[in-house]
Protein backbone atom coordinates (compact mmCIF):
# COMPACT_ATOMS: atom_id res chain seq x y z
CA UNK A 1 0.00 0.00 0.00
CA UNK A 2 3.04 2.20 -0.31
CA UNK A 3 1.63 4.09 -3.24
CA UNK A 4 -0.81 5.99 -1.11
CA UNK A 5 0.26 9.58 -0.92
CA UNK A 6 0.66 10.95 2.56
CA UNK A 7 -0.26 14.42 1.40
CA UNK A 8 -1.20 16.10 -1.83
CA UNK A 9 1.78 18.36 -1.67
CA UNK A 10 4.27 15.52 -1.85
CA UNK A 11 2.41 14.11 -4.75
CA UNK A 12 1.64 17.22 -6.66
CA UNK A 13 2.67 16.76 -10.27
CA UNK A 14 2.68 20.53 -10.85
CA UNK A 15 6.42 20.48 -11.19
CA UNK A 16 6.19 18.59 -14.46
CA UNK A 17 5.00 21.50 -16.47
CA UNK A 18 2.76 23.49 -14.21
CA UNK A 19 3.83 27.00 -15.13
CA UNK A 20 0.87 29.29 -15.53
CA UNK A 21 0.62 30.22 -19.20
CA UNK A 22 0.34 33.76 -20.35
CA UNK A 23 3.14 34.90 -18.12
CA UNK A 24 5.54 34.60 -20.98
CA UNK A 25 7.90 31.68 -21.10
CA UNK A 26 10.97 31.73 -23.22
CA UNK A 27 10.78 29.56 -26.29
CA UNK A 28 14.46 28.83 -26.72
CA UNK A 29 16.20 25.54 -27.39
CA UNK A 30 12.94 23.83 -28.25
CA UNK A 31 14.76 21.07 -30.10
CA UNK A 32 16.71 19.97 -27.10
CA UNK A 33 13.58 20.18 -25.02
CA UNK A 34 11.76 17.97 -27.49
CA UNK A 35 14.45 15.30 -27.19
CA UNK A 36 14.35 15.48 -23.43
CA UNK A 37 10.57 15.36 -23.51
CA UNK A 38 10.66 12.23 -25.62
CA UNK A 39 12.97 10.52 -23.16
CA UNK A 40 10.72 11.66 -20.36
CA UNK A 41 7.65 10.24 -22.08
CA UNK A 42 9.17 6.94 -23.23
CA UNK A 43 10.93 6.00 -20.00
CA UNK A 44 7.81 5.23 -17.98
CA UNK A 45 6.20 2.55 -20.22
CA UNK A 46 9.56 0.81 -20.67
CA UNK A 47 10.02 0.69 -16.92
CA UNK A 48 6.50 -0.66 -16.35
CA UNK A 49 6.93 -3.38 -18.99
CA UNK A 50 10.15 -4.41 -17.28
CA UNK A 51 8.41 -4.63 -13.89
CA UNK A 52 5.60 -6.73 -15.37
CA UNK A 53 8.14 -9.00 -17.03
CA UNK A 54 9.88 -9.51 -13.69
CA UNK A 55 6.51 -10.28 -12.09
CA UNK A 56 5.73 -12.90 -14.76
CA UNK A 57 9.19 -14.48 -14.35
CA UNK A 58 8.67 -14.57 -10.57
CA UNK A 59 5.29 -16.28 -10.91
CA UNK A 60 6.69 -18.81 -13.39
CA UNK A 61 9.57 -19.65 -11.11
CA UNK A 62 7.27 -20.19 -8.15
CA UNK A 63 5.30 -23.35 -7.35
CA UNK A 64 1.64 -22.21 -7.50
CA UNK A 65 -1.07 -24.35 -5.92
CA UNK A 66 -4.76 -24.34 -6.84
CA UNK A 67 -5.58 -21.57 -4.36
CA UNK A 68 -2.93 -19.36 -5.88
CA UNK A 69 -4.12 -20.19 -9.37
CA UNK A 70 -7.71 -19.41 -8.59
CA UNK A 71 -6.78 -15.82 -7.81
CA UNK A 72 -4.28 -15.48 -10.64
CA UNK A 73 -6.41 -16.61 -13.59
CA UNK A 74 -6.28 -13.95 -16.30
CA UNK A 75 -10.09 -13.71 -16.26
CA UNK A 76 -10.01 -12.87 -12.53
CA UNK A 77 -7.22 -10.35 -12.92
CA UNK A 78 -8.92 -8.81 -15.90
CA UNK A 79 -12.24 -8.30 -14.16
CA UNK A 80 -10.49 -6.77 -11.16
CA UNK A 81 -8.49 -4.50 -13.46
CA UNK A 82 -11.68 -3.37 -15.16
CA UNK A 83 -13.33 -2.71 -11.80
CA UNK A 84 -10.29 -0.75 -10.66
CA UNK A 85 -10.28 1.24 -13.89
CA UNK A 86 -14.02 1.84 -13.61
CA UNK A 87 -13.79 3.07 -10.03
CA UNK A 88 -10.93 5.36 -10.90
CA UNK A 89 -12.21 6.77 -14.17
CA UNK A 90 -15.81 7.28 -13.10
CA UNK A 91 -14.86 9.01 -9.89
CA UNK A 92 -12.16 11.08 -11.61
CA UNK A 93 -14.48 12.09 -14.45
CA UNK A 94 -17.18 13.18 -12.02
CA UNK A 95 -14.60 15.01 -9.92
CA UNK A 96 -13.21 16.77 -12.99
CA UNK A 97 -16.59 17.99 -14.18
CA UNK A 98 -17.73 18.90 -10.69
CA UNK A 99 -14.53 20.60 -9.58
CA UNK A 100 -13.97 22.53 -12.83
CA UNK A 101 -17.55 23.82 -12.78
CA UNK A 102 -17.20 24.69 -9.11
CA UNK A 103 -13.84 26.31 -9.79
CA UNK A 104 -15.31 28.40 -12.60
CA UNK A 105 -18.14 29.56 -10.33
CA UNK A 106 -15.73 30.37 -7.53
CA UNK A 107 -13.50 32.46 -9.79
CA UNK A 108 -16.31 34.65 -11.09
CA UNK A 109 -16.27 38.08 -9.56
CA UNK A 110 -18.70 37.80 -6.70
CA UNK A 111 -17.58 34.67 -4.92
CA UNK A 112 -14.72 35.34 -2.49
CA UNK A 113 -16.72 34.14 0.54
CA UNK A 114 -18.05 31.03 -1.20
CA UNK A 115 -14.51 30.37 -2.33
CA UNK A 116 -13.12 30.06 1.18
CA UNK A 117 -16.08 27.98 2.41
CA UNK A 118 -15.93 25.50 -0.47
CA UNK A 119 -12.17 25.22 -0.29
CA UNK A 120 -12.40 24.52 3.43
CA UNK A 121 -14.93 21.73 2.81
CA UNK A 122 -12.82 20.23 0.03
CA UNK A 123 -9.77 20.35 2.27
CA UNK A 124 -11.74 18.49 4.92
CA UNK A 125 -12.59 15.72 2.43
CA UNK A 126 -8.95 15.51 1.46
CA UNK A 127 -7.67 15.46 5.03
CA UNK A 128 -9.89 12.55 6.17
CA UNK A 129 -8.08 9.18 5.99
CA UNK A 130 -9.36 7.38 2.89
CA UNK A 131 -10.16 4.12 4.68
CA UNK A 132 -12.23 6.00 7.23
CA UNK A 133 -13.97 7.94 4.52
CA UNK A 134 -14.75 4.75 2.63
CA UNK A 135 -16.21 3.03 5.70
CA UNK A 136 -18.13 6.10 6.85
CA UNK A 137 -19.65 6.35 3.38
CA UNK A 138 -20.61 2.68 3.53
CA UNK A 139 -22.28 3.19 6.92
CA UNK A 140 -24.41 5.94 5.48
CA UNK A 141 -25.01 4.71 1.92
CA UNK A 142 -24.54 0.96 2.18
CA UNK A 143 -21.76 -1.12 0.66
CA UNK A 144 -20.96 -1.46 -3.03
CA UNK A 145 -19.05 0.12 -5.89
CA UNK A 146 -21.36 3.12 -6.08
CA UNK A 147 -20.60 4.11 -2.50
CA UNK A 148 -16.92 3.60 -3.17
CA UNK A 149 -17.16 6.06 -6.04
CA UNK A 150 -18.86 8.65 -3.81
CA UNK A 151 -16.08 8.28 -1.29
CA UNK A 152 -13.45 8.67 -4.00
CA UNK A 153 -15.14 11.84 -5.26
CA UNK A 154 -15.12 13.43 -1.82
CA UNK A 155 -11.55 12.39 -1.33
CA UNK A 156 -10.14 13.73 -4.58
CA UNK A 157 -12.11 16.86 -5.37
CA UNK A 158 -9.65 19.25 -3.73
CA UNK A 159 -6.70 19.09 -6.14
CA UNK A 160 -8.83 19.68 -9.22
CA UNK A 161 -10.81 22.43 -7.53
CA UNK A 162 -7.74 24.13 -6.21
CA UNK A 163 -5.88 23.91 -9.49
CA UNK A 164 -8.87 25.18 -11.44
CA UNK A 165 -9.11 28.19 -9.15
CA UNK A 166 -5.35 28.73 -9.26
CA UNK A 167 -5.24 28.29 -13.02
CA UNK A 168 -8.07 30.72 -13.68
CA UNK A 169 -6.99 33.29 -11.10
CA UNK A 170 -3.38 33.10 -12.19
CA UNK A 171 -4.05 34.26 -15.74
CA UNK A 172 -2.43 37.48 -16.88
CA UNK A 173 -5.05 40.14 -16.16
CA UNK A 174 -4.10 42.14 -19.23
CA UNK A 175 -5.11 39.21 -21.44
CA UNK A 176 -8.55 39.21 -19.88
CA UNK A 177 -8.82 42.97 -20.13
CA UNK A 178 -7.89 42.80 -23.79
CA UNK A 179 -10.48 40.07 -24.35
CA UNK A 180 -13.16 42.18 -22.71
CA UNK A 181 -11.93 45.31 -24.47
CA UNK A 182 -12.26 43.85 -27.95
CA UNK A 183 -15.85 42.84 -27.27
CA UNK A 184 -15.80 39.20 -26.25
CA UNK A 185 -18.71 38.13 -24.10
CA UNK A 186 -17.99 36.55 -20.69
CA UNK A 187 -18.83 33.05 -21.95
CA UNK A 188 -16.59 33.54 -25.02
CA UNK A 189 -13.76 34.70 -22.79
CA UNK A 190 -14.23 31.69 -20.52
CA UNK A 191 -14.34 29.11 -23.29
CA UNK A 192 -12.00 30.77 -25.76
CA UNK A 193 -9.37 32.28 -23.51
CA UNK A 194 -9.53 31.38 -19.82
CA UNK A 195 -10.07 27.63 -19.96
CA UNK A 196 -7.60 26.92 -22.78
CA UNK A 197 -4.93 28.88 -20.94
CA UNK A 198 -5.70 27.20 -17.62
CA UNK A 199 -5.67 23.67 -19.09
CA UNK A 200 -2.11 22.81 -18.04
CA UNK A 201 -2.78 23.74 -14.43
CA UNK A 202 -6.23 22.10 -14.36
CA UNK A 203 -4.79 18.95 -15.95
CA UNK A 204 -2.13 18.81 -13.26
CA UNK A 205 -4.96 18.80 -10.72
CA UNK A 206 -6.86 16.11 -12.64
CA UNK A 207 -3.72 14.04 -12.75
CA UNK A 208 -3.34 14.32 -9.00
CA UNK A 209 -6.98 13.32 -8.54
CA UNK A 210 -6.55 10.28 -10.78
CA UNK A 211 -3.47 9.18 -8.87
CA UNK A 212 -5.29 9.61 -5.56
CA UNK A 213 -8.25 7.66 -6.90
CA UNK A 214 -6.35 4.81 -8.51
CA UNK A 215 -4.60 4.21 -5.20
CA UNK A 216 -7.63 4.71 -3.00
CA UNK A 217 -9.76 2.51 -5.29
CA UNK A 218 -7.72 -0.44 -3.97
CA UNK A 219 -9.53 0.18 -0.66
CA UNK A 220 -12.95 -0.23 -2.26
CA UNK A 221 -12.70 -3.95 -1.58
CA UNK A 222 -13.30 -3.22 2.13
CA UNK A 223 -16.83 -2.07 1.34
CA UNK A 224 -17.37 -4.68 -1.32
CA UNK A 225 -16.59 -2.32 -4.14
CA UNK A 226 -14.28 -4.60 -6.12
CA UNK A 227 -11.02 -3.58 -7.72
CA UNK A 228 -7.43 -4.78 -7.51
CA UNK A 229 -7.53 -4.45 -3.71
CA UNK A 230 -9.57 -7.66 -3.73
CA UNK A 231 -6.48 -9.61 -4.80
CA UNK A 232 -4.43 -8.20 -1.95
CA UNK A 233 -7.09 -8.85 0.70
CA UNK A 234 -7.63 -12.37 -0.68
CA UNK A 235 -3.88 -12.98 -0.59
CA UNK A 236 -3.75 -11.87 3.04
CA UNK A 237 -6.82 -13.96 3.94
CA UNK A 238 -5.42 -17.16 2.43
CA UNK A 239 -1.85 -16.29 3.42
CA UNK A 240 -0.35 -16.63 -0.08
CA UNK A 241 2.64 -14.43 -0.89
CA UNK A 242 2.41 -14.76 -4.73
CA UNK A 243 -1.14 -13.37 -4.64
CA UNK A 244 -0.18 -10.46 -2.36
CA UNK A 245 2.89 -9.65 -4.48
CA UNK A 246 0.92 -9.82 -7.72
CA UNK A 247 -1.87 -7.64 -6.33
CA UNK A 248 0.51 -5.04 -4.94
CA UNK A 249 2.62 -4.88 -8.10
CA UNK A 250 -0.46 -4.63 -10.30
CA UNK A 251 -1.92 -1.78 -8.20
CA UNK A 252 1.35 0.11 -8.47
CA UNK A 253 1.91 -0.56 -12.18
CA UNK A 254 -1.68 0.32 -12.95
CA UNK A 255 -1.40 3.62 -11.06
CA UNK A 256 1.84 4.57 -12.77
CA UNK A 257 0.47 3.62 -16.20
CA UNK A 258 -2.63 5.71 -15.73
CA UNK A 259 -0.57 8.62 -14.48
CA UNK A 260 1.53 8.36 -17.64
CA UNK A 261 -1.55 8.36 -19.89
CA UNK A 262 -2.88 11.49 -18.18
CA UNK A 263 0.49 13.19 -18.40
CA UNK A 264 0.76 12.53 -22.14
CA UNK A 265 -2.83 13.67 -22.63
CA UNK A 266 -2.00 16.88 -20.77
CA UNK A 267 1.00 17.54 -22.99
CA UNK A 268 -1.08 17.04 -26.10
CA UNK A 269 -4.01 19.15 -24.90
CA UNK A 270 -2.13 22.10 -23.44
CA UNK A 271 -1.49 25.15 -25.62
CA UNK A 272 1.81 24.94 -27.46
Amino acid sequence: MSIFPTSVENFHPLDQKGEVPGLGSSGSSSKRRKVRKFGHVAFRPLMLILILAILVLYLHSTQLDSIDRRSLYWSVIRSELIQQLGLTLISSAVVTVLAVLLGILLTRKKAPVANSVVTALATLGQAAPPVGLMILAALVLGVGARTAIYALIIYSILPVLRNTVTGLNGLDKSILEAARGIGMRPIQILVGVELPLAVPVIMAGVRTAIILNVGTAALATFINGGGLGTMITTGIAVDRTPIIVTGSVLVAVFALALDWVVMVAGEVLSPS
Binding site: G24, D172, S174, I175, L176, A179, V193, L197
Partner: peptide, 14 residues
Amino acid sequence: GIGYVIQNVGLFPH
Protein backbone atom coordinates in the same frame (compact mmCIF):
# COMPACT_ATOMS: atom_id res chain seq x y z
CA GLY B 1 -16.82 48.68 -32.81
CA ILE B 2 -14.05 50.43 -30.86
CA GLY B 3 -10.37 49.56 -31.16
CA TYR B 4 -8.68 49.01 -27.82
CA VAL B 5 -4.94 48.92 -27.14
CA ILE B 6 -3.47 48.46 -23.66
CA GLN B 7 -0.05 48.83 -22.10
CA ASN B 8 0.63 45.13 -21.62
CA VAL B 9 -0.76 44.37 -25.06
CA GLY B 10 -2.68 41.33 -23.79
CA LEU B 11 -2.17 39.14 -26.84
CA PHE B 12 -3.71 35.69 -26.43
CA PRO B 13 -0.71 33.44 -25.86
CA HIS B 14 -2.43 30.30 -27.13
